[in-house]
């Protein structure tokens, strides 16, 4: 790696790099925990969600068909009139929950269940079964949509966050930490090398000095 070779081989740099490794591994550990917690949460929601999307698509196709049929038997005005009688109160309570920094909606609903046969809110005589079918279908779809709202957004948000966290964990584990370790190895190696180098040169200087001294003494002895 390029970065490992062009570091300053100084003791200061070594200390700094070691500090960075410590910090990186701490961050790595934390991120790993975050990832695990997110995945746990994700599977909790996944159990609730099952295959809602697929079911909804099928139901929706049926709903559109029955609605189209109702529209052909009755005109738009009549359908609108019927729909005015069908208004109902739906209590939706949305709380934003924070899971490891991911904001996910928590939805609780209270819907009064009113079946159109037990409690007809529109004229049964003036309308046909086509409308009943459409109303029934869309009531089911509505229930599914509410269930879907609970799970889908949360799932999507969680999975995106999981991916991000996972990428960070991997980047730390496989790129940053190995590189820093390489750097420390490089620096210690260079430092040792320099130490040996200076040791050897000191030795040779000493040897030279001693030899000079001996020569001088020998010269003095010869002169005397």
């Amino acid at each position: 790696m390029a970065a490992a070779t062009d570091v300053n081989p100084t003791r200061m740099e070594l200390i700094k790099t070691k500090e960075r490794i410590k910090l990186a591994s701490k961050g790595h550990k934390l991120l790993k925990q975050k990832r695990d917690a997110l995945i746990l949460e994700f599977f909790k929601i996944l159990k609730k969600a099952q295959d809602l999307r697929g079911q909804l698509a099928i139901k929706m196709a049926g709903g559109y068909r029955s609605l189209a049929l109702a529209e052909t038997y009755h005109n738009m005005q009549e359908l609108t009139k019927v729909s005015l009688d069908l208004r109902k109160e739906i209590d939706i309570d949305i709380e934003v929950r924070n899971v490891m920094g991911v904001k996910i909606p928590n939805i609780t609903t209270k819907m009064e269940e009113r079946h159109f046969l037990t409690l007809p809110t529109y004229s049964v005589a003036a309308t046909s079964a086509k409308i009943d079918q459409a109303v029934d279908d869309f009531n089911e779809i509505l229930a599914m949509v509410i269930k879907l709202a609970e799970t889908e957004t949360a799932m999507k948000r969680l999975i995106i966050e999981i991916e991000k966290t996972k990428r960070r964990v991997n980047a730390l584990e496989f790129v940053l930490i190995p590189r820093l370790e390489e750097e420390t190895k490089m620096i210690t190696f260079r430092l040792e090398e320099m130490e040996r180098d200076s040791f050897v040169s000191l030795k040779s200087i000493k040897r030279k000095l001693e030899k000079e001294k001996k020569d001088k003494e020998a010269a003095r002895a010869a002169a005397a």
Partner: peptide, 24 residues
């Protein structure tokens, strides 16, 4: 937080959810 459902879409979608009792 109390809130409501709103349907924004094409005619069949709006009509369908009107029949399901959605006002908005």
């Amino acid at each position: 937080m109390k809130s409501k459902i709103v349907v924004v879409g094409d005619a069949p979608l709006v009509m369908g959810f009107k029949l399901a009792g959605i006002d908005d």
